[in-house]
Design a protein around this nucleic acid. Sequence first.
DNA 1: TAGTTTATTAGAATGATTCTAATTTAACTT
DNA 2: AAGTTAAATTAGAATCATTCTAATAAACTA
Lengths: 142, 142
Amino acid sequence: MHNAVEAIDFAELVRKAGLRPTRQRLSLARQLFLNGDRHVTAEQLHSESLGQGFGVSLATVYNTLHQFTTAGLLRELVVDAGRSYFDTNVSAHHHLYFEDSGELRDVPGDNVTIGDLPALPDGAEISRVDIIIRVKNGDGTS
Amino acid sequence: MHNAVEAIDFAELVRKAGLRPTRQRLSLARQLFLNGDRHVTAEQLHSESLGQGFGVSLATVYNTLHQFTTAGLLRELVVDAGRSYFDTNVSAHHHLYFEDSGELRDVPGDNVTIGDLPALPDGAEISRVDIIIRVKNGDGTS
DNA sequence: TAGTTTATTAGAATGATTCTAATTTAACTT
DNA sequence: AAGTTAAATTAGAATCATTCTAATAAACTA
């Protein structure tokens, strides 16, 4: 989707999300989308941004992650109690979670198929199906 | 699995989990398993236990929930960041989550089938596959 | 540029969970 | 049954991720 070969207009990206292209949001968008396919926590992104010499407060990291999520640029996912990951891949896909290392890896959506879904109550509508394949004894590096 | 018709020997249940059948653990086991099929948070169980006139501290509720989970009597599940549910149904099944009400409902395991799983790294082994079907606009009461 | 709106921020507040250290209880021994 | 020991319970403090607050700053609009 996004890649390092063709340049991404981050200001455009942020504006399309209905947000002002501030230095902070552009900086975070660059971190998230420049090399694509990331699974980050707010803390990770925050310390990464500090390491790059751009002071972005943790509050802004949280604000921005939520705004990007609302705008459909990110998908929030919960695998562990007490910590949210944000996935830059918003297309249909699922996750492989390495319990030992905490690493999260995408599984193409068509690699997993769901057979019959249960009947839903009247008026109910599926907003999303999350599939997390939890794996142990494997470091996720092979 | 558990039901209200045939009596459950809670002391036996707790002992089989390698734990001493204390008043607190027996009380919590009764709350959890007497009528079966529950999805509770620690806080819920705690206030419920207080309401029944048995003073069980929140710390003990957490300890007990984790011990029961380790013993295979409960399954911990995370649908929302920042709050764990404990499911008394430990057989293979998945979940329907009503985003509006926060209600969680079981989906029989054979109601959902997974087609192809991705290749796993060497040495990796699937410990569990969690499927959460998120539903909106439905109160879960029909 | 002036005025208005939206963002950012430090630090306080919150909420779930875990930890600590002291007390109590269960189980074992004699 | 009393004494001993290991395990369990507890209140309250501590922790960690996240959200809130209210003040300052930057972006947009006219």
